[in-house]
């Protein structure tokens, strides 16, 4: 019986280990890091958006928490995962990042600064009331759209 349990545990560990290994090693790490970063924006924006839309009741504390997360994310130094050579021209379907991001005259960095400013403003007003928070969210949305408009390939 002990042998059987040991064997099962080993097998489970092996399967789990393999899965984690595959998850950890499949794909370009820079792409995965920035997609995770985007996912965190999305999660925190979702908390604010649900309140702005009226799906969830406005809660000043929760709004401030989500907004300061977004501001922190926008202030992150992301240079290490926006590496040249990681656009959809080089990596295909793995990423929708267009090569234009890294080309001369790119405004991607500037848009990220706009996002940092807009999200700092959002964090400053998110606790002041639903209308103030919703208006601040609009400025953040504009920065998201500006970058996606110019630098992200269509989904399909």
């Amino acid at each position: 019986m002990t042998k059987f349990i040991l064997a099962s545990v080993s097998l489970a560990a092996l399967v789990l280990g393999t899965t984690v290994w595959a998850g950890g090693h499949g794909g370009n790490p820079a792409v995965k890091a920035r997609q995770a970063h985007m996912q965190l924006y999305s999660f925190n924006l979702g908390a604010l958006g649900a309140m702005a839309k009226g799906d969830v009741e406005y809660d000043a504390e929760a709004a401030m928490a989500a907004a300061s997360n977004i501001a922190a994310l926008a202030a992150f130094n992301q240079a290490a995962y926006w590496l040249p050579g990681t656009s959809n021209a080089e990596l295909g379907k793995e990423t929708r990042a267009l090569p234009k991001i890294w080309e001369a005259g790119s405004t991607a960095g500037q848009i990220n600064e706009e996002l940092a400013t807009a999200s700092a403003q959002l964090a400053a007003v998110a606790g002041d009331g639903k209308a103030e928070m919703a208006a601040g969210l609009g400025g953040v949305g504009k920065a998201c759209g500006d970058c996606h408009k110019a630098y992200r390939a269509p989904a399909n």
Partner: peptide, 25 residues
Amino acid sequence: PEDIAYYLETGFTPDFDSAGGEMAN
């Protein structure tokens, strides 16, 4: 309907991706 109206206002989809390409305009 609220999701659609909110998307047209802010560009945020219900799962909080944001509009890109021509739709951002």
